[in-house]
Design a protein around this nucleic acid. Structure first.
Lengths: 141, 141
DNA sequence: CTGAATCCTTGATGATACTG
DNA sequence: CAGTATCATCAAGGATTCAG
């Protein structure tokens, strides 16, 4: 059976392994956007009670109405979130993680834990790198 | 001590929990870009021997020289990749995951495994969602 | 209250050509 | 070979306004 890494098939060639961009990439791209992880995180805090649109919006300062709508629509499209529409006046719309949405929380946490434990070191590296670059351009003029 | 989820602090407010975008987000954004995960994945296949720029490029079809350079530079800046420059003629440059870079592989794999096991269901959901939307617009005219 | 439509700005990416 | 510089393109995101 074919080797793979991080969901990508590996093709062995005469001059080395070759990876191919593939479907799972589109999932990662979605999660890597500006708001998706935040929305999922917030919804995961209320596993049993659906959250209203406005409650989610309050929970994520700085998100625009437009981006929250788009983010939720994409999550619904991916089957990660359920949308419940109540045609009252004014209308009420509630959202809740689906089972599939829940199933990603643990693997996701494993990764965000690594980030949490590492990002300060990363910040330090970035500063050092930028200062080194700064020094270089200073010397060269 | 403060609650947190996926590396984000949770602030309890009168009308519900509130999340804040914070530094770890910048790490996720980087990894969510088009090429970073692919480059890391490829480098992880050669843990002991550094890979030449051209070998990495061959390993990732479709990546442009420019984007590979930028991606590697960012990984180096984050301390995830080491760069070894040999001023020969023609020059040779090799890259290798740092220890920090290696430390992310396992958590990352946990997450990409979830994607690998789920993305086909996600694809199915997307198709169903798009068809339902299509039907709606068809009916409304 | 929720969400669609519109316009606009910015950043990410890609193509190409040039350099040490 | 590896990297830089420049230009063009496009999509993500934000502000605003309108609608059901």
């Amino acid at each position: 059976m074919a080797r793979e890494i991080n969901g990508r098939p590996i093709i062995e060639t005469p001059d080395g392994p070759k990876l191919t961009p593939c479907a799972p990439g589109s999932v990662l791209e979605r999660l890597g956007d500006k708001w998706t992880i935040l929305v999922i995180s917030l919804l995961s805090l209320s596993p049993d009670i659906p959250m209203r649109f406005s409650a989610i919006r309050r929970g994520i300062p700085d998100i625009s109405q437009r981006m929250l709508t788009l983010t939720l629509r994409n999550l619904e499209r991916d089957g990660l979130v359920n949308r419940y529409y109540y045609p009252e006046l004014p209308p009420r719309v509630e959202y809740q993680l689906t089972e599939r949405g829940h199933s990603m929380l643990k693997p996701l946490a494993g990764f965000t834990d690594w980030i949490r434990d590492t990002w300060q070191d990363i910040e330090t590296s970035r500063k050092a790198f930028d200062e080194a670059a700064e020094k270089k351009t200073t010397l060269s003029r």
